[in-house]
């Protein structure tokens, strides 16, 4: 693996803070101008002020983690409320509001993960065993959904590679496969054959060992709520969101490329690699740009951004794909 080089932050990514913090005001001023003329600005402002303070988070427990990772972006995080109420987690329903609403029965404690396949150490491990030797780190990553929206989320987790090495994968371990829990009684979406349950995902072993890939146990300083994949999920920030499998119960070291859920469902639309790539359109929509879920209440304008190759992590992960035709291996 190449030695770690801190990511260079392109100057285009850095907005002067004063401009950044005032951008909504400027836009809002423009939009409310007609209302001002009509003499009802006072009311609107009062309402906006009332809506502004962020509600106290209602999920999980606080988690402490080391901050200031050189891998973290300095972009403004999405509001916690939006990141925890706008989720694609079809085991809880296909509407983005469903997972937060229908996951109340989900039990993420106790939790254990089965480690299997081409490794010297296999078996079932409790979540505590899994996490014990590691230090929790905060990683603020961009998350780019294949549906062309994106968020910035402060995850808390451990480098995936550090964990995988503990199981001593053999030379036959060329891929790592992950499986999501499947509990009909707790996950109402499983009643519908939307996908071939349980949800499965996979990475090439060198992708899995990359220091950007993490297993997250929390976000916004707290443990993961069910709708975000409690208690343990993958986060692979240079790939479309569906690769970052949630609520993991099984990790398998395999010799052959594992089957993955969306690829099984529509292989011409969702590839195994699923690296964020503005030059390769989804068959039905462009991936050239994305809409950022910026989230401070009033966010109608100026949220469309250019999508970057590998979601802006090309410098870190580009070398993993040297010689690979990214148009064919989408």
């Amino acid at each position: 693996m190449p030695a770690y080089r801190p990511p260079r932050i392109p100057s285009s990514e850095i907005t002067p803070e004063a401009v950044w913090t005032r951008r909504r005001e400027l836009l809002k001023g423009m939009l409310l101008a007609p209302a001002l003329l009509a003499g009802c600005s006072r009311e609107s402002e009062a309402e906006a002020a009332a809506a502004a303070p962020e509600a106290e988070p209602e999920w999980g427990r606080p988690l402490s983690a080391t901050t200031g990772s050189p891998y973290s972006t300095r972009e403004a995080p999405t509001r916690a409320r939006d990141a925890t109420t706008y989720n694609n987690y079809y085991e809880f329903g296909t509407d983005k509001a469903d997972p937060a609403r229908t996951s109340g029965k989900f039990k993420s404690e106790p939790w254990s993960v089965e480690i299997a396949g081409e490794a010297e150490v296999t078996g079932t491990f409790t979540l505590e065993d899994i996490l014990k030797p590691h230090t929790l780190e905060e990683r603020i990553y961009r998350l780019r959904c294949v549906e062309a929206w994106s968020m910035v989320i402060p995850w808390i987790g451990i480098p995936l590679g550090d964990l995988l090495k503990r199981f001593k994968p053999t030379s036959k371990a060329r891929y790592v496969a992950f499986t999501t829990v499947e509990r009909r009684g707790e996950m109402p979406g499983l009643r519908y054959p939307v996908l071939d349950w349980p949800y499965r995902e996979g990475l090439r072993i060198d992708e899995a060992m990359h220091p950007l890939a993490i297993l997250a146990v929390g976000l916004y300083g707290r443990t993961l709520p069910p709708q975000n994949g409690a208690p343990l999920r993958l986060v692979v920030p240079w790939k479309y969101g569906f690769k970052s499998i949630k609520s993991i119960v099984r990790i398998d070291f395999t010799e052959k490329q594992p089957a993955t859920s969306w690829n099984l469902s529509a292989s011409e639309e969702y590839g195994f690699y699923a690296n964020v790539n503005p030059d390769v359109s989804h068959p039905r929509w462009s991936q050239a740009t994305e809409r950022r879920i910026a989230g401070d209440g009033f966010n109608l304008f100026g949220n469309r951004l250019k999508t970057l190759p590998f979601n802006g992590y090309a410098e870190q992960v580009g070398s993993l794909y040297a010689g690979l035709d990214l148009r064919r291996n989408y």
Binding site: A35, A51, R79, D82, T85, Y86, A97, R291, G297, L300
Partner: peptide
């Protein structure tokens, strides 16, 4: 909803 900012996390998609 637009003025109050209550269109949800992705207000443009909602509109």
């Amino acid at each position: 909803d637009s003025v109050r900012g209550t269109l949800g996390p992705d207000p443009v998609a909602q509109l």
